[in-house]
Design a protein around this nucleic acid. Structure first.
Lengths: 147, 147
DNA sequence: CTAATGCCTCAACTTAAGTTGAGGTCAAGG
DNA sequence: CCTTGACCTCAACTTAAGTTGAGGCATTAG
């Protein structure tokens, strides 16, 4: 293995991401690897930055699918550059801002409603916050046309 | 069925929650029902408030398990009172504040790091945000050394 | 009488992001 | 020579919050 290349164990150690998760990211197309003679994965050091970026994006609420989508617009087979990072993080920061704004308005409504206790379907902003909070909706949803 | 009692379809209609979700909440112990002669679920009107509260808590990031836990401290078999709501929402609002604080500091770090692009495992606040935030516990905190 | 609703139960399926385990290879160390 | 450790593959399992479907009552409309 060339000096500048590292094993999956080293990537795991440096990034704090489990080997099984790195396998998983590879299956999802988020990272790529070469193979050694013994069929072991071999990575360029730049994969550490890539994995680091993945984790930061996840913290910001970006799904792996979205991260993969963002990565797909980058020239692959070269490390993620500072300029790439500016573009990625700028886009993700906007999503993060939006999430913060949603939660903040929910918090404010909650503050307003704690005293009133109405929880009226017609009047309560908290109850009707749905439109504004729609983006947050969690839960299992079958994709239309998937069944 | 007594005047003040309603069917599961009415609960679903009033709250916007699917019948299947109401079944699910019942299995999880979040709501309870009586049965009619035809073995249909029959609810007191107060279940609407209960379900409304469940949805608000979920929006605030509270899991169903945590909601069930909170409900378990309430006298059951009587509607959730205004005073109960104050207690519940106050507790949940704190968790919400904490989530907002986490996302906000992440956003700030992201803003700081967009220009630098270091993503260094040793130095970058963004990369290390996890450990520091985890140690802080709930509540709003300014990260030391993040300015 | 028959069809359409509305409801019932129970089991299986969905998504996301991984983890866990079984079974196998390969190189180094004692 | 044998074991340990790091790695490999592939399949199955995990959690959360439901959804979907099959098969079956009961009430109501036509």
């Amino acid at each position: 293995m060339a000096v500048s290349e590292i094993t999956i164990g080293e990537v795991a150690g440096r990034t704090g991401v489990a080997v099984s998760a790195l396998h998983f990211y590879e299956r999802k197309g988020l990272i790529r690897s070469e193979r050694s003679a013994a069929n072991h994965r071999v990575y360029p050091r730049s994969v550490i930055r890539r994995v680091t970026i993945i984790r930061i994006a996840q913290k910001a609420g970006v799904s792996l699918a979205e991260i993969a989508e963002a990565f797909s617009h980058l020239p692959k087979d070269r490390p993620i550059s500072g300029r790439d990072w500016v573009a990625l993080s700028t886009a993700w920061r906007q999503g993060l801002e939006a999430r913060i704004a949603l939660l903040t308005s929910l918090r404010d409504d909650l503050g307003d409603c704690i005293g009133c206790g109405c929880l009226s379907v017609e009047n309560c902003p908290l109850v009707n916050a749905d439109d504004r909070l729609a983006a947050l909706g969690a839960g299992a949803h079958r994709l239309p046309g998937t069944g």
